[in-house]
């Protein structure tokens, strides 16, 4: 017998894409192509290389932005988690940033840094950084106190407690902060392509819309969502694999 959950996933996908197809045939709107039309456009874009070129362009600010956010974010997060003064000084900024609609900074970034790569990298950074910092700091603060006491009772130095106990104990949460940061970074990367200058996938979306080639527009949007979701799922799988036993093994379970 085929696995029930897999079967239901297929069924579920079939229902949704079927509904899309039917809605496209009615049609619900002049700007609503059918599922098959969109997939045809997607195949076309994939084979003539347009999609590949677009993704190289789109992923550039994303990759640079995430790399910067990861290095800066984890460093600041570690400091904030370890040092009370740093915590007092920096945490409020990131707490406010986490709650605030940072997208509102985009017009300002464009004024300061123009419409080039710098602005786009900046957008990715401000979207991704807060969650990385806050997760890292929280994870450091939540290190089980008995583990730290254990280290101290064996006369570990402060540095050893940090490198051998706190950082390994915090790494699952740091990693998931990174994953959430990448998720937010995707939002930022696409937002900046739609808002600042149309390049990459944002260019395909904007251009197809302007010439009313809605199938291509839907195809591009479909592809970026699928790409982001697959990538984030992959990261989650890696996370579960790497830190399998890391969250368990205490007295309570």
């Amino acid at each position: 017998m085929l696995n029930r959950s897999l079967l239901l996933k297929f069924l579920s996908a079939f229902i949704v894409f079927g509904a899309w197809e039917i809605a496209g045939h009615i049609p619900v709107s002049y700007a609503f192509p059918t599922f098959i039309e969109s997939m045809k456009a997607l195949a076309e874009m994939t084979f003539d290389g347009r999609l590949y070129a677009a993704y190289v362009e789109t992923l550039k600010p994303l990759a640079i932005g995430i790399a910067i956010s990861a290095v800066v974010g984890i460093t600041v997060g570690l400091w904030t988690g370890l040092n009370n003064w740093f915590d007092w000084l920096f945490s409020p900024i990131f707490i406010v940033m986490q709650a605030a609609p940072l997208a509102a900074l985009i017009p300002l970034l464009v004024m300061v840094y123009g419409i080039g790569l710098t602005s786009k990298v900046f957008v990715v950074c401000i979207m991704a950084m807060p969650v990385i910092v806050l997760n890292t700091a929280g994870a450091v603060r939540n290190t089980p106190s008995s583990l730290i006491e254990m280290g101290k009772s064996f006369q570990a130095s402060r540095l050893e407690v940090v490198t051998k106990i706190i950082i390994p104990a915090a790494s699952p949460v740091i990693f998931s902060g990174l994953r959430l940061g990448i998720s937010a970074g995707f939002i930022g990367a696409i937002l900046s392509e739609l808002k600042i200058t149309p390049t990459g996938v944002g260019d395909i979306i904007t251009f197809s819309r302007s010439i009313a080639d809605y199938a291509s527009m839907y195809a591009a949007i479909f592809s970026i969502i699928v790409l982001a979701v697959l990538f984030l799922n992959l990261l989650e799988k890696i996370e579960n694999y790497l830190f399998e036993g890391n969250v368990r093994g205490y007295a309570s379970d």
Binding site: P144, S146, E149, F154, P168, A169, N246, A251
Partner: peptide, 14 residues
């Protein structure tokens, strides 16, 4: 000169 045994074991899960 002293070693501690913890109530919740305090083992490194990793």
């Amino acid at each position: 000169d002293r070693a501690f045994v913890f109530q919740d074991f305090a083992l490194l899960p990793w």
